[in-house]
Nucleic acid binder design. Structure first.
Lengths: 221, 221
DNA sequence: GTCGTGTAAAATGTTCACAATCATTTATGG
DNA sequence: CCATAAATGATTGTGAACATTTTACACGAC
């Protein structure tokens, strides 16, 4: 187990590593995952591995069948666009409503910091990193609500959504454009107008999620 | 471990028992739950208990602090009404859209069966049982979509919602009225008009969830 | 050649033993 | 008597062995 930082328990560290492996594409949707292999890879016993895997099952990143097997999950663009995106909008606008009035100088600096890193990642065309930063940006909104259920549900929804973006790492994402989207969003926050911020956030999420659909998707009507 | 039926692995059976204990009010929100006590109660080792508890943590029914303690979760009516209800509507209407066209005679019979049991539970004024049947009714909608993510997310959202109803078991719930709500909903399904069914479902969820709010809630504007 | 059966191997489920951590109590010094 | 530190107990985290279930494959019957 060669993890530089020690944050939280083993199962959380391992769960995070597996998440990364999935989003990097090292583990592909449908691929079988066994406890033994992971426990050898990470050099820890099966206990924490099992619990980490169970976390990911609940998050929707793995699918398991009792006594049979556990595989990396898959998601259809139908589920992502018609189910997950609307839920994401619910959660994030709710969080925005609750957190917005409390934001101060410090909070806006955190947004700017993430945005700056996005700009750098965009220049290096580092899509995986950019994807993480995108998530961090929205996490700042979600966490500001200070409500456990909000964060917990959001994690689950967002991780599932991200499954859709795995294979497309080599597609020509326009990261500059994505960065601009976040710039616009942050500017709307800075006006101090909550209703305007909410409308912009909705548009932003819809825009961001339809960016990678420039061609007709199978099964769409 | 005195469980009559053997369905699934121990952790799932135990998780279900703990869920019931919470919704029955045997375990109250804020109450501390330890692995050792549960493992003695259920007469199994701590392994499956840990995993069952982790399931419930992800569902939002328990809250755990690393190396410290695990307690039964709590929820505010604010979160329930402004966050969970809208998400529930998203999920169930999506499921309805996907499943509705496939429903046949058999599916409607299942609805009728649950409805009949609700009538009986209402006559006996058995609120906990009624609550279970309410869930079963909506689960029929959710499952008919045949999508894993839908069921998984819905479970999580619904369990959290139900936390709000625990203390109020002794309040005068009008179970007859609830039964009628479901009758009306089922009738709307039987018209075969999807849009009408969706509208009725939305109203039904809103109605059902505001029934127990007959007085102004703190913090509401 | 195909089907079924039985056995071995692999994977998961369960248990128990031990380590690490936190909260509380108990000494100990001022 | 109070404050601080060491010791204790309770609880959770981790590792390793055992039990159960599934899967794969070889073997033999038809």
């Amino acid at each position: 187990m060669n993890m530089n930082v020690r944050k939280g328990s083993l199962k959380h560290q391992i769960a995070e590593e597996i998440r990364k492996a999935i989003f990097r594409g090292d583990l592909k949707p449908g691929e079988k995952v066994t406890e033994l292999k992971l426990s050898k890879d990470f050099e820890v016993s099966r206990g924490p591995i099992r619990e980490a895997m169970q976390l990911l099952v609940m998050e929707g990143l793995l699918v398991s069948t009792t006594f049979k097997e556990t595989k990396v999950a898959n998601i259809t663009s139908e589920e992502a666009n018609e189910l997950l995106v609307p839920i994401r909008i619910n959660i994030e606008t709710f969080a925005l409503k609750k957190g917005f009035p409390l934001w101060g100088q410090q909070h806006f600096e955190q947004f700017e910091e993430v945005l700056e890193q996005m700009r750098r990642a965009a220049n290096f065309n580092d899509t995986p990193l950019f994807s993480d930063l995108d998530m961090q940006f929205h996490e700042l909104i979600v966490r500001s609500s200070n409500m456990y259920n909000v964060k917990s549900l959001w994690d689950s929804v967002l991780n599932r959504s991200r499954l859709l973006f795995i294979y497309e790492n080599d597609l020509p994402f326009d990261l500059q454009k994505y960065t601009e989207f976040h710039r616009t969003l942050l500017d709307s926050f800075k006006t101090g107008d909550l209703d305007f911020a909410i409308r912009t956030l909705k548009d932003h999420i819809i825009q961001s999620n339809s960016l990678n659909i420039e061609f007709p998707i199978e099964g769409d009507k």
